[in-house]
Amino acid sequence: MTTLLDDLLNMEAEEIWKLNERPDADGLRDKEQIYYEDVNEGDELPKYIYKPTPTHLFRWSAAIENFHRIHYDLDFGLNHDRNPSILVHGSWKQSVAPQYLKDWTLPNGWPWKARFEHRAMLVPGDVLIMWGRVTSKYEKNQMGFIELEIGMKTQDGIESMPGTATVVLPLRDGPPIPYPFVPPADD
């Protein structure tokens, strides 16, 4: 049972960090399937908590070969772009979102699509909460579609990535989700 987002936002940053539900490799290896029938409107997904440091930002810049100085050069960020610090990458946030949806739908569901905006400047020292909440569900073509509200909030409740997502879960007595994924013709 995940800690509710509203409850997390009433906690101190260090308490939030202790409730991190990011799975380790074994947790992902042994992940039990969530079926369409298991999900109800209003359900919250596990909360992934991050505490990015300058080193995390540098590692991401290097991994994707993004050399924009606002992400690793503090002097440039403060004095040239007048930012409050070096900034967490939008590209990292938008890569966490599909990872989060993938993990929730494993092993046989599908993280079909996500839409989001980038708001707020995130900086090292922020505690970030990747969250999701079920807004509706429907069956189509013997697949279970789950509509989600998703986002990444700071410990202060500032939403930095408001968005929505659609994922697909198998029905308990349904066929496997097609792979590569084939959406219904009218979606």
Binding site: D24, A25, L28, H56, R59, A62, I64
Partner: peptide, 18 residues
């Protein structure tokens, strides 16, 4: 490098047998 920077330890990315 990408998955370590993303902090996604999914063994589907590296454990061939699994």
């Amino acid at each position: 490098r990408f998955t370590q920077a993303l902090m996604d330890p999914d063994p589907r990315y590296w454990d061939d047998e699994f």
